[in-house]
Design a protein around this nucleic acid. Structure first.
Length: 427
RNA sequence: GGAGAGGUGCGAGAGUGGCCGAAUCGGACUCACUGCUAAUGAGUUGACUUGGGAGACCGGGUCCGGGGGUUCAAAUCCCCCCCUCUCCGCCA
């Protein structure tokens, strides 16, 4: 959530920034009015409580001095005051509820230099690496699902039998390729990120504070008999680790990575772009997250982008870096770069990593803070991004490695991890 | 899953209805002493919120695992939940 102080102290500017993200100014105004109403109500409640507290200690004094009659009289007086106080408190709660309801619909502010724009069409390609259209002319490319089925490393039929559409079942070298990819990515980042194996099932409270469980975000699967949820991304577990904590300045930046399974309901996503490994209810991913001081956010962001790109380069996959325009930014992000890998099989750029600078948006709800050396407590800034999302990278490797004889050559960097140089159909 | 014990500030730990945002010890920070470090002495040291002030700061309110309740008054009494530890059971 955003800082409600911004609504009160810097309303014009905040409205303008949120408008770039497509937020109706009327909603911002509504939030501001409620924030003001809350302050007024807080003052009223505090005044009543002050009176209450003074009266209560006066009763104590009178009792000690054995002035029973006076004490009794004051007690019944305070009894009435208490009723009034409770009414005021009730009103305050109701204002706070409305305020929370409205502010929970306000996204994070975009960073100032994020390009204007309304949709995906206005996103800016910052750089393209390793891609030459000429490389793909003059020969036939196949989508990975066809190649993989032929090689017997992906079995969509049986996955559907077990679990329905948008699930994958990998076999043989396909399974090994997945396992190799994750080990490869984890090794690549081992010096800068601490590897974590978190629980894959978390409390509703934890996931809610990461912003992945709102009225509008119903991606996560819930366990039927418990208030526990399957993580839609490792970010949820990693960001949840320090909720409610005040870290020492010297601990920052915190850099974690985790290889986890991710589960997403992907409601409404059925259809054409879900074939093969493009979009799954269950997939595997190495996630990177950082917590840092506010002033280090942009630097950490750029290095996170570089870190996320490193495996793609090492695997020799053509990719591009896209900066999302203000209107296309995700709800909690101030800045997002997407890494997209070119897929010759479908002739499209597929998002394999989305790197977000979340500033203090998540840490405010999660109360993840740090104490400055000289004193003073502040919210940490948070960043996250995929270090390697396996399904689409798996698919890209299969498509790019395709040779005319139907076999698939693996990138050399991966060979030690998979144990073979070529994926071929089992005879 | 069953039985018991317990959750208090940065840490340890006292407090069982008003004098408690909270003893004491430790840690950290500041100052003094000192060539430096150590030691010693003095002092400071929770978060959030609201009001005043340019600010240093000052006043009010809330918070003793979380949520309800009793009471003029709750860290303290009652109920529910969460967590930790010990023992038993089960188990990869």
């Amino acid at each position: 959530m955003i800082d409600t102080r911004l609504l009160l102290d810097d309303f014009e500017e905040t409205t303008r920034k949120l408008a770039r993200k497509g937020v109706d100014p009327a909603l911002v105004e509504q939030a501001r009015d409620l924030a003001e109403a809350r302050r007024v109500q807080v003052r009223a409640v505090d005044a009543a409580r002050q009176e209450m507290n003074a009266g209560a200690s006066r009763v104590g004094e009178l009792m000690r001095e054995s002035r029973r009659d006076e004490a009794e009289a004051l007690r019944s007086e305070l009894s009435l005051l208490r009723a009034r106080l409770e009414a005021l408190e009730q009103e305050l709660r109701s204002v706070e509820e409305s305020l929370d309801d409205v502010t929970s619909r306000l996204p994070n502010l975009p960073a100032d230099d994020v390009p204007d724009g309304r949709s995906e069409a206005d996103n800016v390609v910052l750089r393209t690496l390793g891609y030459d259209p000429a490389d793909y002319a003059g020969r036939r490319w196949e989508p990975h699902w066809d190649i993989a089925e032929r090689l017997g490393i992906l079995d969509a039929q049986r996955a559907a039998k077990l679990s329905g559409t948008m699930f994958a079942l990998l076999k043989g070298d396909g399974a090994r390729l997945l396992r190799g990819l994750t080990a490869f990515a984890l090794d690549m980042h081992r010096d800068s990120y601490e590897e974590i194996v978190p629980p894959h099932v978390v409390r509703g409270e934890v996931i809610a504070k990461t912003g992945h469980l709102t009225k509008f975000d119903t991606q996560a699967y819930r366990l039927r008999d418990d208030d526990l949820w399957l993580i839609p991304t490792g970010e949820v577990a990693l960001m949840g680790m320090h909720q409610g904590e005040i870290l020492a300045e010297a601990q920052l930046p915190v850099r974690y990575m985790a290889y986890t399974t991710c589960w997403r309901r992907e409601a409404g996503a059925a259809g054409k772009e879900t074939r093969g490994m493009q979009r799954l209810h269950e997939f595997h991913k190495v996630e990177l997250v950082k917590l840092c001081k506010p002033e280090d956010g942009e630097t950490e962001f750029q290095s996170l982008v570089a870190d996320a790109a490193k495996p793609l380069e090492a695997l020799g996959l053509p990719y591009r870096v896209v900066e999302l325009c203000a209107g296309d930014l995700t709800f909690s992000a101030a800045r997002v770069y997407d890494l997209e890998v070119y897929s010759p099989g479908v002739d499209r750029w597929l998002e394999v990593s989305s790197i977000s600078l979340v500033t203090d948006f998540q840490s405010r709800r999660g109360q993840i803070r740090f104490r400055r050396q000289g004193g003073g407590v502040e919210l940490v800034h948070a960043l996250n991004g995929s270090g390697l999302a396996t399904p689409r990278v798996w698919a890209a490797i299969v498509e790019h490695g395709l040779r005319s004889d139907g076999t698939v050559v693996l990138p050399p960097a991966l060979v030690p991890y998979v144990g073979v140089e070529t994926l071929r159909a089992r005879s």
